[in-house]
Design a protein around this nucleic acid. Sequence first.
DNA 1: ACCTGAACACCGTTCAAGT
DNA 2: ACCTGAACACCGTTCAAGT
Lengths: 198, 198
Amino acid sequence: MAELRADAQRNRGELLGAARQVIAEEGVDASLRDIARRAGVGIGTLYRHFPTREALLAAIIDDGVRRLAATAEGLAAAKPADEALDAWLTKVAGTIGPYRGLAASMLEAVTDEEAGDPALRLACEGMMDSGRDLLAAAQASGDIRPDVTWPDVFTAIAAISGIASQPGKQDRDAAARVLAVYLDGLRATHAARPVQAM
Amino acid sequence: MAELRADAQRNRGELLGAARQVIAEEGVDASLRDIARRAGVGIGTLYRHFPTREALLAAIIDDGVRRLAATAEGLAAAKPADEALDAWLTKVAGTIGPYRGLAASMLEAVTDEEAGDPALRLACEGMMDSGRDLLAAAQASGDIRPDVTWPDVFTAIAAISGIASQPGKQDRDAAARVLAVYLDGLRATHAARPVQAM
DNA sequence: ACCTGAACACCGTTCAAGT
DNA sequence: ACCTGAACACCGTTCAAGT
């Protein structure tokens, strides 16, 4: 990756910038042609750099998820396990939320071994490890229900953070309120209720 | 609606059946041309009957939401308020879940006064009333937190039920488990935690 | 090595022409 | 009153041709 030709490197940067803009506005299903246009390159160039829409998404979030993984350790050291988990999950939701549909794409990448895009799954790996660790610590400390798994919790966070980029902005932090209720449900302070089939 | 020409009525039925099939398979963004093809009519006919994709969605779920509204009263009479709410929300999630993306469309219709499609919003009206009533009753009985609103709860249910139609079926009832945790968080049995900004 | 854009098979949506 | 399909402007994706 380091030995890209100078023009190629510039194009890559231009594409990434344009993609961040367009996807923030239009969501993950935004037109790739649009992105290429705004980056000032041909559509073929976009495909050469990012063979897959998910590869482009992976590149977009790469920095963010790396930061999340880094944050996890600091939080674990500074706070009680359950509060660290809370704060971190809130950060995750905040990072993913603004890009409409991104949470669903990440969920698919991480969850679906065959259909999920490998590049996006790879990008999420560090973040997934951090989440698993934080959850395990909070469960070990007895603050969080022992019967939830990290995949389930991440699934929940992904679904809930999607609320933030939903159209209908009359209530911008509905996602935060829903998340608060879910995090409450995660506490071990009360008896777990049985799961009802849907 | 009753005085449709015979052939028009048949076409409408054919379109509805095809739409249910295709959308169950491909999600709410399924190709309208595909639906028209499978119904054996021209694309123009689809547009004449359902001027908007959301109008088609509204027609598809009309029966289901009507049933939900009807169920609500029975549950309220038969069970304690909080259990009635639980059971009903679970039913809602089960009804909406199978159609990928439907929950998001309904949420937009119900939430976004300007951009949301009026036909879909209208179709959801009875269901929304039922939910509001059930929640109010459960809050009045003291079982459910007083600080949550029905729009927030519906938003949560919509987001969570979307999990069920997410690709990556390795774990088919993840949605049910996430819902159970959220419903737990809805209980008034423990102190509400503060909402953190995302 | 890398970039470009034409080409292909699609799609949503509209609307003249038909019965 | 209703149906049809061509027409338009898009889109994702590929690939020959260029430098």
